[in-house]
Nucleic acid binder design. Structure first.
Lengths: 244, 244, 244, 244
DNA sequence: GATGAATGAGACTTCATTCAT
DNA sequence: TATGAATGAAGTCTCATTCAT
């Protein structure tokens, strides 16, 4: 699985062709360009955004530093303001971009035709992997909640992005119920909250849990076991069963 | 259920009479000062600490303001430095004091024998209610995790507090398995993490979830429904069943 | 009376056809460029200048914004620097251009012979109307004075423009004194200053006066009354009278 | 006549007694205090305010620099924010303080019993002297008007302060009319505006007028002549006369 | 023990200006 | 001639912290 960590835009080709071209003679008459040869607004904006996601995830909103972002993104501080107006807006953009990543990933799920049990399992595993692999998204969301949703409340896109997810889940549930493998009366929203809770807790509470149980909750082996349990919990819940 | 919020020091009397108690001579030579000077060191210190707990729980470490604390505690800013040296130390002191409150509260838990299904249900509901009723504890834990367990790692007492809980859970599981109502091979620690996750998520992520799904996740009616679901999820998972 | 506000360049044709006019050959060899490049240097420069006049009149020198000017003139910021080097120079250019407009306007005055009382009244009313109708001129003058005449001191043409006005006033006074309707020993310069002060104050101090007296000093009804008072004050002063 | 320039608080007694007291021996054990020995909130606040009046008068609001103010007032920048919250509020305080100075001065006039002609003359001369002696008040007001009264509109005290002035003027007018030396139907507000205009113009427009008429409008001799003219203009206007 | 006044570093933000094409 | 991207200095403001009494 690919990680969700902010990374440079794939389609960037820093000085791929221009510096030191074939014509070696003219190279001297032409002025020497400094490293980020071809600056481009969209690329720069994206670079700032990705760095900001990491910065705010690591230090929170008040702890996040514009200076650090500008240094890491290798741009002048003013560019941040040029593209994002102010710290609040930059933070919100980072938050929205993070949500977009997971929501986009969810769209890759094949919800319609598959075996519904398999589809649900895929959704759970995708969520688990996304949150566990890199904690930046989890930290960003924890931060936002500690701020009592000050910024998320101003976002129109975040509720909007949730729609398809809920739709997918409902489709899966309906198809499973039609096939008689899922029980009736499952609230899709509540189910999603359960999935999220099961996939979130060991990341969000990694340090306190590690301390409580005296072992590292980010160890791959432990995560692998946990992943099985989470899928088991969810599928047990939705399964159409009889008590023995 | 009573809340975990720090409360005024009225019902506490630690060293209320301690400073200079026995020395009868100096009591008369010392000039009697009228209020505001000499309020009583321990009491002032405690008041600052309690206000700091609330401040850091509400705003986190970088979001927490010394000024706000001094105003709320009704002391001069300098007093905070007099008693706690700096913001870092004050934060640590506040965190430790908070954990003490939580630990004390947990001692009231009584997860006795009863019917194992019933006992498990009681444990889940107790956890759910505890976390949902007052977000103070949840916010504190979130904060600590965002700070990467800076403080929790130094604590020897915190792992301790987990023991009894885990023991209770193991007792319940064993008894349920013996009665053939619970399936085998349930990892107690992992089960606890699941319970915690299911009970934690709508409190920790209250604001982002509210924004995503466009309704208030702290509404009593919603919480009541959620509580049923959580119990259902947990009991479905441990139940000894056959797929239909 | 028409306003003194800078207006779009439509009705102006300075050097509209000047660049390369006679050389008929080059017209065909030169490739025809489509917009936006090569808009026409003089026109662009003029547009910038006019916008700058309005900007500095409205916000003063330090309050004036290069960005706002570039946006309003619909040119890239760099163009401003291309044509005017820096903010200081642009301000000076704007000031000079403004004075030119004013000077041109004043040439339309016709303070001929007539009845001297009538002539004086006409001059006062013209001044009053000119200043009251559009505050552009007033604001510009205020600005220049706040900058301690930085620019006006360098201008040779400005003293010139005063001459005709002062001459008119002297002619009127002399004629009124000969007719025995004006008192002797009136200093023309001082009289002009008085007229200016009486006509200027409610425009220059419009906002502070409105605040002090709690009504709008730019209301037409109030201005009409004020106009009568100003004429009355001036004519009372110059009148040849006996105390009762 | 006393000047209106911001000056140190009269009742300040910088290190009047403490440094180097009589007891020469203890002088060495006692730590050396730096110059502004006894800092006092009210005094510091006042010092900041007075410096701010001068700064904003000289450079306007956007041109005014907090740094310069803090340096001139010999306080740390933060103190300015401690006492005045922000630049806007500081500016407004400076504006209000300036208005208070002239309004207080006006209150010293003996309006009731004197000869009404004399009383009016005194008011005119007071206004003239106040505005002419030091231009800081005039500049401050010009600035505010260039800002379109942005700050003055938020002041409740400024309209309030105007009341007594208007009352005084009405008292004088009524008394003069009763004594049959003033004509009827004089609007007090409009009269004040005229007085202000006559006393204001040569200060507000000092530089442009100097340039127009090619002599210095702040020369004492010229001001003395101008003062006579202004009184003459005002008294001519209110006088109860017959045309010759 | 307690207070009020003051400090300084560093945060966010703005704005005139320039660089490279 | 014209543009879009970028820069750096400096401005306003905040906040943890200390000084002097």
């Amino acid at each position: 699985m690919t990680t969700a960590t902010p990374k440079p835009a794939e389609d960037r080709q820093e000085d791929s062709s221009s510096p030191e071209p074939s014509d070696t003679v003219s190279a001297e008459t032409r002025p020497r360009r400094r490293s980020p040869a071809k600056r481009n607004a969209a690329v720069t904006r994206q670079r700032i955004l990705e760095v900001a996601m990491a910065e705010f995830a690591e230090h929170g909103f008040s702890g996040g530093r514009i200076d650090r972002i500008s240094a890491a993104a290798d741009v002048n501080v003013s560019m941040i303001y040029h593209y994002f107006s102010n710290k609040d807006d930059l933070y919100l953009a980072a938050l929205e971009a993070s949500y977009k990543i997971i929501r986009d990933r969810e769209k890759t799920l094949d919800v319609a035709d598959a075996n519904p049990r398999q589809a649900l399992k895929a959704l759970v595993e995708l969520t688990f992997d996304f949150l566990s692999t890199d904690s930046y998204f989890v930290r960003l969301i924890m931060n936002e909640n500690l701020m009592m949703g000050r910024m998320v409340q101003q976002s129109a896109t975040i509720p909007h992005m949730t729609r398809p997810l809920l739709d997918s889940l409902r489709t899966i549930l309906k198809s499973g119920q039609k096939a008689n493998v899922f029980r009736k009366n499952i609230d899709a929203e509540n189910l999603y909250v359960s999935i999220l809770g099961l996939c979130f807790i060991h990341v969000s509470n990694r340090y306190t849990l590690s301390s409580m149980f005296q072992h590292d909750f980010s160890e791959p082996e432990w995560l692998a076991k946990r992943r099985l349990v989470v899928v088991d919990v969810v599928t047990s819940y939705v399964a159409n069963v009889k008590a023995k």
